[in-house]
Amino acid sequence: MAFQILLNVFLALVWMFLKVSNEPIDFLVGYFFGLLLVFTFRRFFPSRFYLLRVVAVINLIAIFIKELLLSNIAVLKVIIKPKLDIQPGIFALPTELKKDWEITLLSNLITLTPGTLVVDISDDNQTLYIHAMDASDAEAAISSIKNTFEKAIMEVSR
């Protein structure tokens, strides 16, 4: 991935030399044409085309903002409700992520989302223990985290 970006910057510089120009706009134009070249030759790189990963990161951020707003409203409702009828609890979330940074990212996103909070992680890094504001339906919470955050993180690191 780093190699593809470096190559793309290099192609943009070549474009600037060809145009005998030092304008930033020509760098951008060159970067765009370089991107087309890298895309054309994507089969010859060991890793996949890097723009796909950029799209995956943007997708992850979008999912996160959506979850942040939705669950903030949910927590807000619980707090200002006259009757306190929450059912908090700690449930275990088995995770398929392997690398340390993926697990760190997942637990950060889970903790940032209101209503869920990572309390601990098992010694073999395969289970996250999550305290939830509403643990009455742990299965639903597990599958929703798996389908949103974990899937999106896997898409980034693939």
Binding site: P88, I90, A92, A135, S136
Partner: peptide, 11 residues
């Protein structure tokens, strides 16, 4: 944990 907590997998 609060007495009304429903589950505790960590215990």
């Amino acid at each position: 944990l609060w007495e009304n907590s429903v589950q505790d997998d960590l215990a």
